[in-house]
Structure formats: C-alpha cells, structure tokens
Design a protein around this nucleic acid. Sequence first.
DNA 1: CAGCACTTGGGTATTTTCACCTAGGGACTA
DNA 2: TAGTCCCTAGGTGAAAATACCCAAGTGCTG
Lengths: 205, 205
Amino acid sequence: MSVPTHIAVIDDDEAVLDSLRLYFARQDVETSCFASAKDFLAATRSGKRFDCIVSDVRMPGMSGLDLVQHLKGAGLAAPVILITGHGDVDMAVAAIKVGAFDFIEKPFDEARLLASIQNALNKMQQPEIDAVELEKLQSRFNTLSARQRQVMELAVVGLSNKEIGSQLKISPKTVENHRAWVMERIGARNIAELVRIAMKIQGKP
Amino acid sequence: MSVPTHIAVIDDDEAVLDSLRLYFARQDVETSCFASAKDFLAATRSGKRFDCIVSDVRMPGMSGLDLVQHLKGAGLAAPVILITGHGDVDMAVAAIKVGAFDFIEKPFDEARLLASIQNALNKMQQPEIDAVELEKLQSRFNTLSARQRQVMELAVVGLSNKEIGSQLKISPKTVENHRAWVMERIGARNIAELVRIAMKIQGKP
DNA sequence: CAGCACTTGGGTATTTTCACCTAGGGACTA
DNA sequence: TAGTCCCTAGGTGAAAATACCCAAGTGCTG
C-alpha cells in the first residue's frame, strides 16, 4: 500500500480475524480488528477513522448490511467491503444498492480482497477533500442541540424568525438567539452559506 | 400497473420469452420481446422507448451487463432488470455497480419480477418531475437580463446589496431593484429559495 | 416615432436581521 | 453545592432588506 493505510476488520469469527490480521500485517497495512459492528462503532465514536472497512455480513447483533446503512446515514464516507459465507445474490444486490463498495464470497483469495481494498482507496482519493470537508461540516452540525437543529432546518427553507417562532411556539427573540448560535457553530456568515452547508450535509442537490 | 407501461424483454431463450410475454399480458402490461440485445438496440435506434427493460445476463453476442453499460453510456435512463441462471455474486455486484436496477436469480417468482419492475417505475417517476421542474427553472433563469444574472449570482453567494453594488460599481439601490426583479421572475420568496434554485440550475451540490 | 424593456437612481416607511448585553430557570455533573 | 450548558426572552441600536412609489436615459423594434 503506497500511503499509510489503516483498515478496520469486523468479524465475529476469531479465526478469520486472526487470519486477516496476519495477512495484512505481512502487507504492511495497519489493521484494527473488531468482534462486532457495535465495537467498531464505539471506536469511531471516540474519534478513530479508517481508510477502509472490511466486514462480515452475517454477525450476531448488527449485520454488515446494517452497518453500511448506518455509516451512510452518519455521513461517514469510508468504503465498506462486505464478506459473506453464503453466495447470496439478493444480499449482494442489496449491499451494493445501499452503498457497499464490494461484496466478496467466502472462501476468497486474500489477494482478491487486497485488490478490492486498493481499488476502493483509489476511488476514494478523488473526493477525499470534499469528504473531509463534509465530515467537518457534519461534525459541526452534530454539536448543535436539538432546538438549534430545528431552528436551522426551518431557517434554511427560508422562514423568518417570526415564522419560525410561531411554528416552534417560542418568541422570535429566542429564535434569533438560536439562529446566532447556529451561524457561529456551523461557521456560516450569512443565510446563503447556511443553506449551502445544509444542502451539502443532507446531500440534496 | 397503474399507468400505461411498456416493457422490453430480452432473452435468447424462446421459452422464457413466451412465458414472460404471457405473464405480462395477463397483468395488462404491454411488452415487446427481443431475442438479443442487438435486436433491442435496433428498435431503440428507430425511436422506440420503454419504461423498463428486463434482460437475461448470458446471451450470445452482447451480454446483459454490456447492454446496461451501453445504455448508460448513451444516456438512456430506463431501468434495467437483469436475470441470471447462475447465482453469480460477482456478476450481481458488477451489474449493480454499472447501474442495473436489480439482479434476479433464476428460477424466480414472476411476482418478484413484477414487484421489481413496479419498484423501478416508482423510482424513475421521481426524477422525472424533478427534470420538468428544473427545465422550468432554467427557462425562467434564461429570461433574466445579463445584469440581473450578475446580481443573482452575487446574491446567492451571500453578498449584501451594498457589497454587490460596490462590486458591480452601481448603487445599492439599483441592486435592490434588480434583486426584486430576480426574485419575482425566478419565483423565489426569499434568499434561501433563491440559493436552492441557483444550486439546482448549476447542478452544484 | 412611439412603445417597450432594461438600467440606473432616488424617496419613504416598514420589517427584519445582526450584534451586542442581561437574566432567570432547569438539568446535569464534578 | 457550584459550575456548565441549554432554553427562554427581553432591550438597544445599527444595518439591511422589503415593499411600494417615482423618473430619466438608453437601445431596440414594430
């Protein structure tokens, strides 16, 4: 791998985890292993970021498919490669549709997996700047309180403070205060910027 | 099917073709059958359009996968549903990646295929409205004079009338007048709407 | 030439936003 | 218990936008 690469491997089967850890170590790829999607998400919540995620599909608790959907919902752009034991076409279709980068059948050639990872990293390098930018915006948005989010959502559709106030049943003055907080936290200097940022976060062009 | 629907079915196996033709006829769905992708493309070249395309994957000559790629390249948006005899996960992944709408294994339930078609048609109806809407916005934008367009462009990046005025070397008052015209012609009731419309027209999310 | 659209600019009054500041009450935490 | 964060809401004053009105100059076209 040309650039320093950090990969997350998720599988409830210890043997598979060990095998992949060993393989990636030989390829000079840094890996972090997790026994469940939950463990992995806990790591991301504490700020860890990975260049690529390799996950089993069938696991107790959250499945690989669920994980992909969750990550997409959270706006995390890291490519996910799913691995399955059963040659399940329907599941493969569903996985790719929700945004998995690849879907590989077990037993698989480890080189095939590595190739897929390399492929994913190449594809992801293009919009990396945008992705980083978006993640920054996303994280800023996440620091907003529930009320502030409500105000922001209503503001970006063009409602005045008075209108927002009557809709949320609070005084226009309070809306004004929330709005000021939103602008500062998001880092927007005017409504136009706020609308742009909101559209980026929501991904609605 | 609620609206008049015309489906293309492509398969080199006469038996499958007959079977699907019969099934769709019973569902009041108009179908055109083709024995090869080449025959189908010949029909599209003479102007025929279909709401949905159902095609076998493995066929002599152009495969179903090739067909999807070709159609995407030609800018034809009709959804393609691929059918395969072999439970080939890799091919399913490849098909969805290049833009096939669904990938169904043989033997399949005919109702499953119909459900997928219905699903495809629903999905395709959404952007159709968007496309009409966008054309309307585009035409409105085109009625703007050069000066009005300048003002609009500067306004949607968040500049105040004063800033726009100094940039265009005209009085803020004039900018105000232009701005009012822009809002009326575009049909925006506030800056937020104007920003949204501008982004739609420019296609920059 | 007369009419039309566009640009430019001004006036006036109202409404809204923005930038500050103060302040109480509630919930959570060290 | 004190500190912190959030929601609430009020005040002041400056800046900006909005909604109307008006008019003069330009350039094109029937």
